[in-house]
Every structure is written in structure tokens, then in C-alpha cells.
Design a protein around this nucleic acid. Structure first.
Lengths: 206, 206
DNA sequence: ACGGTATGTAAGCAGGTGCTTACACAAGGG
DNA sequence: CCCTTGTGTAAGCACCTGCTTACATACCGT
């Protein structure tokens, strides 16, 4: 990869035609954060190297360590940035479908939350990463558990989350057919119907 | 030449990896295969290093390459050895529960099939490994698909397999509570009930 | 203008990886 | 006996990893 995607020459006319970097710490910090977010979602934690991230940001990798300290800390900031927005912005009875549709949507627009995808792709990684990922899972499961009035609601929530992640696993990281190309509506309908036996608090499937 | 003592050594079961090895290519081959099987199931493909495998087998790592050529080839032999026995030995309508219970049983007896666990722990790995793992998934999904008479039976099979793997993911690799410590019977009952909406060919839940 | 400092870079370090090579030793046949 | 062959080992190679260091340079207050 000899040609890194250099930072676009900003509107600021530096005079020189070289397209050199403006010295803007916050800007390059965000560049690194964006690059890391994309690469973690694409390859998972282990397979996204700091060199790749820095290269994608168009920045020397030493800056990554100056601004974030370590790869793990960068990962933490990435997950904290947009990770739990969807979790908090979605009412519990819609969370499952929203998360499922978020994972079924392939073209990842800037708005979609890919943190669950990051989790799935980073599973084999170090124990500390697994710990961090378990935290996000716990929050999802806690919300899903409120959808059942049964006394084993927490277990039912875990099972629902398991299905959600399993579907994401098969679809986006394994690419299993026909699931990978299936219509999101069809998947939601089938899963929704089956889940009514598990969680009573789900909205009726039409 | 103390041939009597040598013969006695050969007759003895060589369980421990300690002490000197007798020069037995087939024997050390199997030692490597066993060690690899355990370590792949415990840590996944990437995190099980060839040094660890050779060390666990009590032999030099160079032998690993002499007998198998590469780490990937060794992985292939491990997966081919016991991977699909359970798949072929189990009638379709029982496959889901057998596989689920196999994943819920923590104490991995010598009989239990851990190849699905290997899949789960190796997901982040290289693309070629993912390809190999997809093959096993395909076979499971094909069997599960026969349990539905609907015209989207293949999709329903994929969804059932997704749940199976998702549960394994949460339980054995993430260790999510309360699922990780839940009673296997309770899990099977909840999942079985919900799955009747998806696959009609499942045996009645009690 | 100018010096200090924030920002950026090139080069390298220590450790780990899969894999290879050169060699030691045992067995068996001429 | 020696010499070939199969089995096992120690050492090393080339590369990759996260991370650090020494240095260059643009910006900004004075």
C-alpha cells in the first residue's frame, strides 16, 4: 500500500501545492478515530493493525500512540463514541428489530451503528477486549430482559441477544447463503414470529 | 541390546508428554493432532500457536511441519477428523438439540464434538479459515433446512443455525451471564418452544 | 523577528509468528 | 563395519506486531 489516502486538501489555501497536513491535533485525532472505526468494523480488533489505521488516516502511526496511548485505548474510544447511542435512543420494545435491521443493512451509512459488528469480528481477540465487548452485550441483554415478565426474563433476554448476534455472525462475517442475501423484511418477520414465544413485550408482527 | 525393555516401553500407553519419545512417526502424528484439537477448541485458530501445539504434544515444532506441511493443513486435518461425525450420526430432527446440548455441556468429554466451538473461536481468523468453517456451517444448515416444509426452508435453517451458534458464542466464548450458567434443560426448552414457530419438523417439546 | 512548543515524521526496538535449515542419533541392510 | 534412511532437535530466518525514540518543522505569543 504505497499510496495512503492523503488527507484531502482543505479549503485552506496553504500556498504550497504540496497538500501538506495542517497542524490540527483535533482534526487528526478525529481522522484516526474514523479510520479506526472503519477498520475495526471491517476486520475486527486483531486484524486491524495500527499501521493500517494510521495509513488510512493518512498520518504517521506514532501520532496514534501520542493521542491514544495504546491500540486498546483507541479501541475503547471508538466503542464509546457511537457504541451505545442506538442503545439509549431506542425504546426497549423496538431495540431488537432496530439492532437486527442495523446488522442486516449492508451499506453502512454514516448513521448506522456498527459496534455490534465490531464485537462479532473481534471475538477471537485478547481477553481484555472480550471483557470490553461483554459490557456492551450486557447492556443490550438488560434491555431485552425487560421485555419478558417471566421470572427467567434475564435468560430469555440472553437468548434473544444470542440470536441477534448469531444472525449477524452468519450474515455479515461468515456470509452464509441464503441468509446473507435474504430480504431483511423476511428475516425480521421469521425471527419476530418465533420470538413471540420467548418475549411477550415484542410488538406484534403485523 | 536390551530389546526386552524397549518392547515393554512400546507396549506401555504413552499418555504423558514427558520423558523421551520412542521413534514412532504415527504416534507423534497423533499426539500433534490431539494437542492441536484441544488448543484449537480452547483458543481458536489464530491464538493457538504452532509452538504451543508442539509443546503440548511434547515434540519439536519442526515435526509439525514435516507431518502436516503448514498450520492451516493441520487445522484442516483436525476439523476433518471428528468434525462431521456428529453431523452424520444424528437424525435431522434431533440434530439441533444434540448440537445445542453439546455446546451447553462444559466438561468436554472425549466423545463430545467441539468442532462448532472451534468455529466460533476461530471466526476472526484469516479468510481461508473462514472458508473452511463455512463448509461445516453449510452442512449443518442443509440438514436443518429439511425440517421445514416452507419454500423458504433454507432461510429458516440458516436462522436456526444462527441461533445455535449465537447461543454457543454467548455461552462458551463470551461467558455471558446468566446464560453461561443456565441449566441446559431450561435453555433447550425455551429455544425449542420458540423454534416450533420456525421449523415444524422439530420433536415436540416434552 | 524569533524562540518555544505543539505537531508530524522516519527509523528502530523487543517480542512474537509461521516456517526452514543444519545437524544428532537410532535402526537396519549391504 | 559403514552407509543410508527415518525420526527428533536446536537454532535461526523473514516477517509482522504494538510501541518508542530521536529528530524535523510549522505555528504562535512575545
Amino acid at each position: 500500500m504505497p499510496e495512503a489516502t492523503r488527507r484531502a486538501v482543505e479549503a485552506a489555501p496553504c500556498g504550497g501545492a504540496t497538500g501538506e497536513h495542517r497542524r490540527d491535533a483535533q482534526g487528526t485525532r478525529r481522522l484516526l478515530l474514523d479510520a479506526a472505526s472503519h477498520l475495526f468494523a471491517e476486520r475486527g480488533y486483531e486484524r486491524a493493525t495500527v499501521r493500517d489505521i494510521a495509513s488510512r488516516a493518512g498520518v504517521n502511526q506514532a501520532l496514534l500512540f501520542r493521542y491514544f496511548g495504546s491500540k486498546k485505548a483507541l479501541f475503547g474510544e471508538v466503542m464509546a463514541r457511537g457504541g451505545q447511542e442506538q442503545l439509549r435512543a431506542t425504546p426497549p420494545e423496538r431495540l431488537f428489530e432496530v439492532a437486527l435491521r442495523g446488522m442486516l443493512a449492508e451499506g453502512a451509512g454514516p448513521g448506522t451503528d456498527r459496534s455490534l459488528e465490531v464485537c462479532l469480528r473481534s471475538i477471537g481477540g485478547s481477553d481484555e477486549i472480550g471483557e470490553a465487548l461483554r459490557g456492551l452485550g450486557d447492556e443490550y441483554a438488560d434491555v431485552l430482559a425487560t421485555l419478558s415478565r417471566a421470572d427467567d426474563g434475564a435468560l430469555r433476554g440472553d437468548l434473544a441477544l444470542s440470536w441477534l448476534l448469531g444472525i449477524g455472525l452468519m450474515r455479515v462475517v461468515v456470509g452464509k447463503e441464503p441468509l446473507a442475501s435474504a430480504d431483511p423484511d423476511a428475516v425480521c418477520r421469521l425471527v419476530g414470529e418465533a420470538l413471540t414465544a420467548l418475549l411477550e413485550g415484542l410488538p406484534k408482527t403485523e
